[in-house]
Amino acid sequence: MGKLAIETRGLKKSFGKTHAVAGVDLAVSAGGVYGVLGPNGAGKTTTIRILATLLRPDAGEAQVLGYDVVRDARSVRTRVSLTGQFASVDEDLTGVENLLLLARLLGYSRPRGRRRAADLLDAFGLANAADRQVKKYSGGMRRRIDIAASLVVPPELIFLDEPTTGLDPRSRNQVWEIVRGLVAEGTTVLLTTQYLDEADQLADRIAVIDHGKVIAEGSSGQLKASVGAGSLHVRLRSPEQRAEAERVLAAALDVPAEPSADPVALSARISDPERVARALAELSRSGIDVTEFALGQPSLDEVFLALTGHAAEETPQEDAT
């Protein structure tokens, strides 16, 4: 662990009776990607807005790159940039005007700002769209200009709030490539996401957050390990044998086997992979025909279910902003 890029203790923020952030402790080391994973309304956006100095916490402390987000907000602002979830550039303006506006605000002279805007548009494959209003951009282009706008002055730390929500798979991959590129150049990235595979793909460490609290923290491997070694998935030849298979597996593995939606499939969470071979042998001895089996690492979906008791995609309320 290097030095900490972000450190929070007991961070709290309420809006009326909604406790959007209810005591968040984070320790994010510099470099790499830190993922904040949670469903809508979990408090991800509120947390990121506090860290980017847009909201003052009701209680607790937060340091970003060593500076207090309340007392030393300006020092934080000069070193980080935020790519919000929605429209973080002016939709009425063209791509080049947006970047030039930010360049001017950040201290570039007009000619240098123009050059900087052109370089960024080039790097993000938007040179052809430079003089088009941002509201006419496609979703993927929008996201790229959003991120480019955050790099007008290269930040030490960049916040990406749900950078791929609503993007098609190709644009999503492009954003992932950008994130990896940023990290390769030494930028620390904190991203929020409600997509488990996104956190899995990108993040070195993940904080799972639900109802305003961090409920688990670690690498994706650690989180998976915390809910067991994985799952055994079995497919049978005939659905009539499933009930018996369920019983046999439960006895051999010592954990309940669960029928899937597919009438010939069932799965069981396993703690000890060595038992799997024995369980499969038991099935064949009982005369149950197995057509397919697979041993899977637990998905982060399962992790989320195990940690919170509800699925990650459940959306109880709008994300408090």
Binding site: T53, L54, R77, T78, L82, G84, A87, S88, E91, L106
Partner: peptide, 11 residues
């Protein structure tokens, strides 16, 4: 709109 968030996060 979100763009004001960006303005407010500028130094």
């Amino acid at each position: 709109k979100g763009v004001f968030d960006r303005f407010r996060s500028l130094p």
